[in-house]
Design a protein around this nucleic acid. Structure first.
Lengths: 210, 210
DNA sequence: GTCGTTATTGACTAATTGGTCAAATAGATT
DNA sequence: AATCTATTTGACCAATTAGTCAATAACGAC
């Protein structure tokens, strides 16, 4: 990560206001359709301040994207902190992603939009997932095809689930069901035995997000 | 579909030039970042002609998106024309999608971009897929969880595969392997027995696209 | 309080952009 | 060839927009 330069409180507030405003606007339209004037108006700061904090619009968009990505990444890492079993860690990642989509639909929309249609590059689940999958294959918990294609497979599913949730805005009950079903399909596809997959899916209550 | 109004040859050429130019530009950046001036310059027509054919930029983008979507939809329908077994039809859809991404990466990029991050809405595979999945569940070919979540699951995978292919640009051999692996994971997840899934994956040679 | 540093401000400019329209042109019909 | 219609053309306009900068205000150190 880039060294977090120490920021004066005043400066930090302005920056935060800009980013918050950018968030709100990015929920509805892509960055290229958002004039800087709109951002600063919403943030309640002067236009000059924008360029005081960001080189240009693209840098601004990147900063926002990075922020959400990091947010989800942190949640996943924290949730999986104590868990050893790689299969449970893999499932846990999807649970966090889905729960995030449920409780933070706006942030999720921005996240998905910022990803563009990229899967492999810098996905918030990517970091740990790859090693978890390899470990699981190594331990004979997943079918061998998952070694190379498991990452693509799982990230694709997570992305689809998130997209679906922010579109449908399901009730808590519908959410539970959808997550459980996708977990069963997904885990079984990876090679987890049906019984175990069903068990894991059943245990996955909606995670609490701080 | 909208009634294809008969078009004068001259008019048709201009329109085609505009759409072709739009395609090229949409490969690299989203519609909001593309000035109409750039489109007409690339198309080699006057600016006025643009508005002669499209009400505004958004209509233009929609026209292009519709065109690719229809293109893939047609390919899938044609490829599945003679096939009865729903599981084979489902797998065939993914094969077409993947092959399209391999042979038409630019068009695929535009397609994926135009979808935004939407899964369920108007996906080129969506139309037939839903009924195929229901039929397959009915016939006991898929696990029951696939009835509700199978569509989301499969579309997510197709999207992920397409994205991956245009990013990686795999060799023919790598492509074959990737498609086969994802088919095995995907089909098994849906509830297809391993042996059958492996068989189908093996049989799926790259489809020829007209 | 005074001074020096740092961040904010908003009026301003230059360039871009979406969209219009009257004139020109190509094609068809007679 | 003459006439009529459909289409193209590109100069033009009004509005928007990215980015600048000198003046101003906030803050911290002493």
């Amino acid at each position: 990560m880039a060294s977090q330069t120490e920021l004066s409180p005043r400066s930090a507030r302005t920056r935060a206001a800009l980013i918050a405003a950018g968030f709100e606007l990015l929920v509805e339209r892509p960055i290229d359709a958002i004039p800087i004037d709109d951002v600063v108006a919403k943030a309640g700061v002067a236009k000059g301040s924008f360029f005081n904090h960001f080189a240009d619009k693209q840098a601004f968009a990147n900063a926002i994207a990075t922020e959400v990505r990091l947010e989800v990444e942190t949640l996943v890492t924290r949730a999986n902190a104590g868990i050893e079993d790689p299969v449970e860690r893999i499932a846990g990642g999807m649970r966090i992603a889905a729960t995030f989509a449920l409780t933070q639909p706006k942030r999720t929309a921005v996240l998905l939009r910022s990803q563009g249609s990229s899967t492999a590059r810098r996905h918030p689940l990517n970091s740990g997932l790859r090693v978890d999958i390899e470990a699981a294959v190594e331990q004979g918990l997943l079918r061998h095809e998952a070694r190379e294609s498991g990452l693509l497979y799982w990230l694709g599913l997570c992305q689809a689930v998130m997209t679906n949730i922010i579109e449908v805005k399901p009730s808590k009950e519908a959410f539970r069901k959808r997550l459980a079903e996708i977990l069963i399909l997904g885990l079984t596809g990876l090679g987890v035995p049906e019984a175990r997959a069903a068990q894991i899916a059943k245990d996955m209550a909606p995670a609490k997000l701080s």
